[in-house]
């Protein structure tokens, strides 16, 4: 009986400890973000670093975003056509494809793709810098590592995520056009007319808001994981970099989907 009570107490204590750890790491991540955003404006020299990161996060993601965008649009065109045709509403395909892309799939898929391409590399690069004394070297040179490594990445993500999402949306709509109009024979004018009449400004701003939030989430989580690689308790050295990178991608993807639900519920 006493042993049972002891086991229960230990389990409750462990649950309490992990809850406290979770809440305190959330707080740490939030403070990390605040510091990162504050330091964006610390010096005019930050602009060069932000542009360099925009090239890495933005320009270098153009191809993959275009590729995913066109195929997502094409699949939506196909699936949408075969669903709508059952109700004799295939003329609404343009509206279905564009609204799905602009409000939901565009921001989410873009964010997940950039997480895989740029978020993982942010975590790995900063993690390697941490375990090879490069961050300490910056610190000793009186160069704030947060300002040098984290702030430009957060700023570049805030700028690039909405732009890449817009590109994804446009290319996705063209993908829907390819299957719906070119392959399945929907009238071209009807396709674009339905987009024009059904998509309102609130849909576009809602999509951009999501992209902005996802950008902040991905950059913050990825940089945080890399920056704190040395504090990991599950591994050391190169293994800790690999674990930080995995954690950055998994946590970013989960938070993208969770925050997507929260934002959508507020927007609707």
């Amino acid at each position: 009986m006493q042993q049972q009570t002891g086991t229960r107490t230990t389990a409750i204590a462990a649950l309490g400890r992990s809850t406290i750890d979770f809440v305190s790491s959330l707080g740490e991540i939030f403070l990390f973000l605040i510091e990162g955003v504050r330091l964006i404006f610390s010096s005019p020299k930050q602009l060069t670093k932000i542009i360099r990161q925009m090239y890495f996060i933005g320009s270098k993601s153009l191809f993959v975003i275009s590729l995913i965008g066109i195929f997502t649009g094409m699949v939506l065109g196909l699936q949408g056509y075969y669903t709508l045709v059952k109700f004799g509403s295939e003329g609404l395909l343009g509206a279905a494809v564009s609204l799905t892309l602009i409000r939901e799939l565009g921001p989410v898929l873009t964010a997940i793709m950039i997480t895989g391409r740029a978020g993982s590399s942010m975590a790995a690069e900063i993690g390697v810098m941490r375990i090879s004394d490069q961050i300490d070297a910056l610190d000793v040179m009186d160069i704030n590592p947060m300002a040098y490594l984290v702030s430009p990445r957060i700023a570049a993500s805030i700028i690039c995520f909405p732009l890449l999402t817009a590109l994804f949306d446009v290319i996705g709509i063209l993908g829907g056009y390819l299957t719906g109009v070119t392959m399945l024979g929907i009238n071209s004018g009807v396709y674009f007319y339905r987009i024009d009449t059904n998509v309102v400004m609130a849909d576009i701003t809602g999509g951009f808001l999501k992209a902005l939030v996802f950008g902040i989430i991905v950059a913050t989580i990825s940089c945080y994981q890399g920056y704190n690689t040395h504090r990991r308790t599950d591994s050391v050295g190169p293994e800790s970099v690999s674990n930080s990178t995995t954690a950055a991608v998994v946590l970013s993807c989960v938070l993208i989907l969770v925050s997507d639900y929260i934002i959508t519920s507020f927007l609707l």
Partner: peptide, 25 residues
């Protein structure tokens, strides 16, 4: 400071690494 393995920033050239403190300060 000279760290054990140099701790040079891998993404910068030697010139950019050495000039980093000057460029920043």
């Amino acid at each position: 400071v000279l760290f054990q393995d140099g701790a040079l920033l891998g993404s910068l050239t030697l010139g950019e690494n050495v000039g980093l403190p000057l460029a920043e300060h």
